[in-house]
Amino acid sequence: DDVELRDGDWRVELKDADEEILRAVEEAIKNGASEQELRELAERLIR
């Protein structure tokens, strides 16, 4: 699993992620995405 989400800690570690993925995830976090939404976003972007 390349995506690590810690309970109560919104730092997201994406291994080997490019800047576009990181920006998309950071934007989702700023917009108040839930953990499930972040997982789905990350899975779509990593593929």
Rank of each mutant, 00 (worst) to 15 (best):
D1E: 15
D1Q: 14
D1M: 13
D1R: 11
D2Y: 11
D2F: 12
D2S: 13
D2H: 12
D2A: 11
V3Q: 13
V3D: 13
V3E: 12
V3T: 13
V3W: 13
E4F: 03
E4Y: 02
L5W: 13
L5E: 15
L5A: 14
R6H: 09
R6Q: 13
R6D: 14
R6I: 12
D7V: 03
D7M: 03
G8H: 10
G8F: 15
D9I: 00
D9V: 00
D9P: 00
D9Q: 01
D9S: 01
D9Y: 01
D9W: 01
W10Y: 05
W10I: 09
W10L: 07
R11D: 06
R11C: 07
R11V: 11
V12S: 15
V12N: 08
V12K: 14
V12R: 09
E13Y: 03
E13F: 02
E13N: 15
E13V: 15
L14A: 01
L14V: 06
L14Y: 07
L14K: 00
D16M: 05
A17L: 11
A17T: 06
A17W: 09
A17M: 13
D18R: 06
D18H: 11
E19N: 10
E19Y: 09
E19I: 10
E19T: 06
E20Q: 12
E20H: 15
E20K: 11
E20D: 11
E20V: 10
I21T: 11
I21K: 01
I21Q: 03
I21D: 02
I21L: 09
L22N: 05
L22I: 12
R23N: 07
R23W: 07
R23Q: 11
R23P: 00
R23Y: 05
A24R: 11
A24N: 04
A24Y: 08
A24K: 12
V25I: 15
V25G: 00
V25W: 07
V25S: 00
E26W: 03
E26I: 10
E27H: 07
E27M: 03
E27R: 12
E27S: 10
A28V: 01
A28N: 01
A28D: 00
A28F: 06
A28I: 02
I29V: 10
I29R: 07
K30V: 09
K30G: 07
K30F: 07
K30P: 00
N31M: 10
N31W: 02
N31T: 08
N31Y: 01
N31K: 12
N31L: 12
G32P: 00
G32Y: 00
G32N: 05
G32E: 02
A33N: 03
A33C: 03
S34P: 03
S34G: 10
S34L: 04
S34Y: 02
S34A: 04
S34K: 05
E35S: 09
E35L: 11
E35R: 06
E35I: 12
Q36Y: 02
Q36E: 11
Q36N: 12
Q36P: 05
Q36C: 06
Q36W: 02
Q36G: 07
Q36A: 14
L38A: 15
L38K: 01
R39Q: 10
R39K: 13
R39T: 03
E40W: 02
E40I: 10
E40G: 04
E40R: 08
E40N: 08
E40T: 10
L41M: 08
L41F: 02
L41R: 00
L41V: 01
A42H: 08
A42K: 06
A42M: 15
A42F: 15
A42N: 04
A42V: 15
E43D: 14
E43K: 11
E43A: 06
R44S: 14
R44M: 07
R44V: 02
R44A: 10
L45P: 04
L45K: 04
L45H: 07
L45Y: 01
L45I: 10
L45R: 03
I46Q: 11
I46T: 09
I46N: 05
I46H: 05
R47C: 07
R47T: 14
R47I: 11
